[in-house]
Amino acid sequence: MGTRCGIVSPYSPILPLNNGKASAHEAFHFWGRCERMPESLIAIGDALPYLLRGSLVTLIVVVGAMALGLVLGVPLAMGQVYGHWALRRAIAVYVWFFRGIPLLVFLFLFYFGLCTALDINLSAFTVAIIVLGLISSAYQSQIFRGAILSLPEGQLKAARALGMSDIKAITVIILPQALRLSVPGWSNEYSILLKDSAVTYALGVAEIMARAHFVATRTYQQLPLYFAAGMIFLILTWMGTKSLRLLEEKVRIPGYGSSPQLAAESFDP
């Protein structure tokens, strides 16, 4: 990638619009002209394959960030629930810091600021994943913390009574249950991350939004193209939450899982 701090060419990672292939969308174009279809639909049809390739970039960013957030978020949650008070305080500050500052500021801070200051050469794509992942880790740690706290205390005590060490009790007894309980929280986090990933366009990551803007400024079909981008995001959100619900069903242990939540929902003061 040719992007380096200082001079940023936002569109350098973008592939040529039509990869020299004339098949599908040229036919669409032709058909469109024949039917006197509105120009806007032709523009969307032309740009669609290009936008869809961007949705792959978006998905990689989102999945990467979620994975990073998971890897960092679980220990953070553990520390916040079971840790020493100093550790708890430190984690609370971490969460406050990453939840209190906008994504855009973090992106600029990391990409233009820290990467240059520390002389690290990272692409916008990598920075986007790291920043989204760090922010997500703060949010995910709270999801896990809620899940751990919602488990009955007897679980840990029973594990200790059976002679398990603290570490073993947490990793074998608490963690598997807490992870199951946090799937609904994840599906929320997924849709937030998906929408936030559109902001990484500011660094020039070639995701859906950047591509829609790129095509729109050349074809002057702004409204239809942004609308198409929005629709792709809607579909991706829908698909993601649907598949996470399937995951929730799949990992559920009969008799366990949704009970604390059901209790929380049916609570009527």
Binding site: P224, F233, L234
Partner: peptide, 23 residues
């Protein structure tokens, strides 16, 4: 609600600012 929660805010802002001149 589905539309405004499902579409990222950046895209919405772009629609209002860069998109509306189209009409």
């Amino acid at each position: 609600v589905v539309v405004f929660r499902g579409i990222p805010l950046v895209v919405q802002l772009f629609i209002w600012y860069f998109g509306l001149p189209y009409i």
